[in-house]
Amino acid sequence: MELYLIRHTAPAVEKGICYGRADIPLAHTADTDIQRALAPLPRFDLIYSSPAQRCTRLANALAERDGCELRLAPELQELHFGQWEQLPWARIPREHSDTWAADPWNRAPPGGETEQALWTRVATWYRAAFPAAVSCCAIVAHGGPLRVLRCLALGQCMEQRWSWSLAWGEHARFVLPPG
């Protein structure tokens, strides 16, 4: 099966704002950005998307273009930053953010989740996600879940998650072995 990992297009958020699971809208250039992202992509049999509007706009455009099913997967949401969501990073006390940043795999922002929880959530979903009849599937999501999915598709360990990323609206293609 061919698997395409696609990052949503640019969000409408000020630089320096902490956001993860917050459902922020897309930038004013969204329509143009979405058309640019669609152009090089093949036709899909099935599309999965994070339920965040910054993902569903692109996912809906793909599903409409291809006449295929779109399934929303809450497991594909970005890392939850809890009480830090939508705060400027500069307003988060350094002693808190530095402690978290020193070990985000095991530490969570207040009321948020660890990267280990993100990995577990995405990996559990991934193991059951793909029907046998699907030959070409797209996943529209956020940077964090896409890094996890890449590691899973390539059989890499979690330590490899930060060695790769996609820009806004960019995609990567993987060929998964049968079964």
Rank of each mutant, 00 (worst) to 15 (best):
E75G: 10
L76A: 04
A138G: 11
C55R: 03
V134E: 08
L46T: 06
R150V: 11
S49K: 08
R121Q: 02
S165T: 02
G16F: 00
H8Y: 11
R7Y: 04
F130G: 05
A133C: 04
T124Q: 15
Y4G: 06
A30K: 12
C68F: 07
R173I: 04
V148G: 04
L58C: 00
Y19V: 01
F130L: 12
Q83R: 02
E78V: 11
E159T: 08
V175I: 10
N60T: 12
L118M: 06
G111S: 05
W168N: 13
A22L: 06
W89D: 06
I17V: 15
T114L: 08
V13N: 07
A172E: 14
L146P: 11
H96D: 15
L118N: 00
G20K: 02
R57T: 02
L62D: 10
D31H: 09
S97G: 07
G112L: 06
A172H: 14
A59W: 09
P104Q: 07
P109T: 07
H28P: 08
L76M: 03
L118F: 00
W168H: 12
A63F: 00
D45N: 14
Q35L: 05
Q86R: 10
F130V: 11
P25E: 09
L72M: 06
F174G: 06
S135I: 01
A27N: 15
T99N: 04
L5V: 13
A133F: 03
P131E: 09
I6Y: 04
E95N: 12
C157K: 14
A128Q: 13
L5N: 08
P109D: 07
A37I: 06
P40Q: 02
T99E: 12
A22M: 08
A27R: 13
L154V: 03
K15C: 00
G111Y: 11
Y19T: 01
E64P: 01
V175E: 15
S97V: 11
R71A: 07
G143A: 01
M1V: 03
F130R: 13
P177T: 12
F174Q: 13
P88Q: 14
Y4Q: 09
A59E: 07
A117L: 15
I92E: 10
G179F: 00
L46M: 08
E115F: 10
R127V: 03
P178H: 09
G112K: 02
G179D: 02
G67Q: 07
R161Y: 04
S165K: 01
A22P: 04
I24H: 07
C157G: 14
N106C: 11
A132V: 11
L87P: 00
A108P: 06
H96L: 14
L70I: 01
E115V: 00
P178E: 12
A133V: 09
P109F: 03
F44E: 01
W164Q: 12
H96I: 10
R65F: 08
A153Q: 02
P42W: 06
E115M: 06
P88D: 10
R36C: 12
G82Y: 01
Q156V: 07
P11C: 14
P74M: 00
P25N: 07
F81C: 03
L149S: 02
E75F: 04
K15L: 00
P88A: 13
I6A: 00
P131V: 12
L87C: 05
L41M: 06
V175N: 12
P177A: 14
A129C: 10
W119H: 14
G67S: 09
E159A: 14
R21Q: 06
Y19G: 02
P11M: 06
M158D: 11
C151R: 00
V148K: 03
R71D: 09
L62M: 15
R173T: 10
Q160L: 03
